[in-house]
Amino acid sequence: MTNTPNRSVERAFRIVDELSENGGGRASELAARLEMPVSTVHDYLQALVETGYVTAENKEYRTSTRFLEVGHRQRHRLEVVKAVRDELATVADETGEHVTLLIEEHDQAVILAVQEGPDAINLFAYPGARMPLHATAPGKAMLAHMTDGRVAELVDQGLVEVTSRTVTDPDVLLEQLETVRQRGYAVDEGERIAGMVCIAAPVLDKREQIQGAICVCGPESRLGETRREEIADVVQRAANVTQVNLDYV
């Protein structure tokens, strides 16, 4: 078989993903879901246990906290995390809502940090959570500052419908991205989470390259037009401070 090493790595991570998504499982269960021989799955699981990335108890396998260690280290190496400093806490205090810092990675928006204000709704958001760029305010804030070619590539992959409000028409999305560039922030109204409004501002570096986005989310009932404008001002200010900090990280 060609590309055997690549194939082995792919299989190992398929098993890891399956364990993570289902909270664990036995070798036979994993083999059935992945359509792989039980003996093969068992060998991979044993290797993952030996490296410390999977735990085993009573023949039940689960991903270990080693992944937290790896992710935590990488997150703190990113300049934008250092640059945001206390801005997320300030935004959470001023808005009272749910605040996140996201970056783009592998064509998705990825949460790096979360801060909850006193009135924040629990959205089960955590560092490492991924979501479609086109269906989120922070994703649109970042897309608006990517090259036309990059945006076209992402659109060609398909605009998946997450909720009934998700924008799936490429022309509508491109119009929205132009609006984002003009006013300096992006909005999504229940496009990823029904009933929630999210407002995000892009974080750029001194070369005007996109480094991430700061986002505030709250229920539609609390985020009317006037409040949205107030929150937009807050997130834009925080993004600007973060951009300045990037020059001195």
Rank of each mutant, 00 (worst) to 15 (best):
T4C: 02
P5K: 01
N6A: 11
R7G: 08
S8K: 13
V9K: 12
A12G: 01
R14I: 04
V16W: 00
L19T: 00
R26E: 02
S28K: 04
E29Y: 00
E29G: 02
R33M: 00
M36A: 12
T40L: 04
V41H: 03
D43K: 07
Y44D: 02
E50Y: 01
E50V: 05
G52V: 01
Y53G: 07
K59P: 01
K59W: 00
F67D: 10
L68Q: 15
V70M: 15
R73Y: 04
V80I: 14
A83R: 06
V84R: 10
L88K: 09
L88E: 12
A92G: 07
E97H: 12
T100P: 03
D107Q: 12
I111E: 02
A113R: 11
E116P: 05
A120V: 10
N122V: 11
F124C: 13
F124D: 14
A129Q: 03
R130H: 01
L133H: 02
L133I: 06
P138N: 04
P138F: 03
P138G: 03
G139V: 02
H145R: 06
M146V: 00
T147L: 03
T147I: 03
R150C: 02
V155I: 15
D156L: 08
R165K: 14
D169A: 09
E175G: 15
Q182R: 09
Q182K: 08
Y185P: 03
A186T: 11
D188I: 01
E191D: 10
E191L: 05
R192A: 11
R192Q: 12
D205Q: 04
K206C: 10
G212Q: 08
G212A: 03
A213I: 07
I214N: 06
C215H: 06
G218T: 10
P219S: 15
R222S: 15
L223A: 06
L223F: 04
T226E: 14
D233K: 14
V235H: 06
N240R: 15
V241F: 08
L246Q: 11
